[in-house]
């Protein structure tokens, strides 16, 4: 008996009562797909890189999981982990939020950076973690992304950034907004040196992150069905006169509109990264 078949029968037999029970226990033995409602055997789901085997929904990955599926085993060395948030604006409840998130995730910020190898190619890599205030970009995030580009520039290494962010972080006001300019300038300086910058857009890649360093990559890969755009869902709805077409601003729509290079299922991303790194890791014999 195949495991798939067993899961299928088991999930059907589980019935409504079980589904209700499973909703309350998302981290248990079983995981419910938020898109198609299929009840998935958690271990099998993990083996499938957290992609639903029924509808191909790509679950969000926390930064450690993302690194695991992206870089060579044991190759990641974190940098700038000691950067942490200062509530400069004395924004209400911000300190408490950060403390709670740090305690829960073990992270200081929603951007984790470091060096690693992918298929043997050394890279400087940044991975966004949505658990930390929706992967929003504040001063720490902007500084880490900037240092990432500067590290790549200093060591002549390609840069890979995996995005998963709601946008700029409101709690740091104008300081957050300026991270857009700061990181874009860093990407510009990095690009001038003839080094490759690859971006992976996962669900969601939005607003202040999308409209800054993210869109400046040489090559953009998107995971299927990721929401990608400038305005959040609510603002976008207000801006529309007509009803939004199906699939509006999802990865496939963005590819149709020429805004991403390719949409790849999670399992195929690493192989493609290796090919891209092979093309871009060493300077060509022509040009500047």
């Amino acid at each position: 008996m195949s495991l798939d078949g067993w899961i299928h029968r088991k999930s059907k037999a589980a019935g409504k009562a079980a589904r209700k029970h499973l909703d309350a226990l998302p981290d248990g033995l079983w995981t419910k797909c938020p898109k198609c409602g299929e009840i998935l055997f958690s271990k099998e789901l993990e083996k499938n890189l957290m992609v639903c085997n029924k509808c191909s929904y790509h679950f969000k990955l926390a930064s450690p999981q993302r690194l695991e599926v992206t870089v060579d085993d044991g190759s990641f060395v974190e940098m700038d982990a000691g950067l942490s948030t200062v509530n400069t604006l004395e924004f209400p409840q911000y300190d408490a939020k950060i403390q709670k998130l740090t305690a829960a995730s073990g992270l200081n910020d929603g951007m984790v950076t470091g060096t690693a190898t992918i298929g043997g190619y050394p890279v400087v890599i940044g991975v966004a973690d949505f658990r930390f205030l929706a992967g929003s970009m504040g001063s720490v995030y902007g500084e880490k992304v900037t240092r990432l580009f500067e590290k790549g520039l200093a060591e002549k290494l390609p840069v890979l950034i995996v995005n998963c962010s709601g946008g700029a972080r409101m709690q740091e006001g104008l300081l957050s907004l300026m991270q857009m300019a700061k990181t874009s300038a860093a990407a510009g300086k990095f690009g001038e040196a003839g080094l490759m910058y690859i971006a992976l857009f996962t669900d969601p890649t939005m607003a202040g992150v999308h409209a800054s360093f993210a869109m400046l990559a040489d090559v953009i890969i998107a995971e299927p069905g990721a929401l990608i755009g400038l305005a959040g869902q609510r603002v976008a709805a207000q801006a529309q006169v007509m009803k939004e077409p199906p699939g509006y601003r999802l990865s496939e729509w963005q590819q149709d509109h020429g805004m991403v290079d390719m949409v790849l299922p999670r399992r195929e991303i690493k192989d493609t990264l290796v090919k891209l790194l092979a093309a871009g890791s060493h300077g060509g014999s022509h040009g500047a």
């Binding site: 060395v77 974190e78 000691g82 001063s139 300081l175 700061k182």
Partner: peptide
Amino acid sequence: MGVYAETQCENG
């Protein structure tokens, strides 16, 4: 531009 705190970490 930006304000943050920084402590030296093992790998930092």
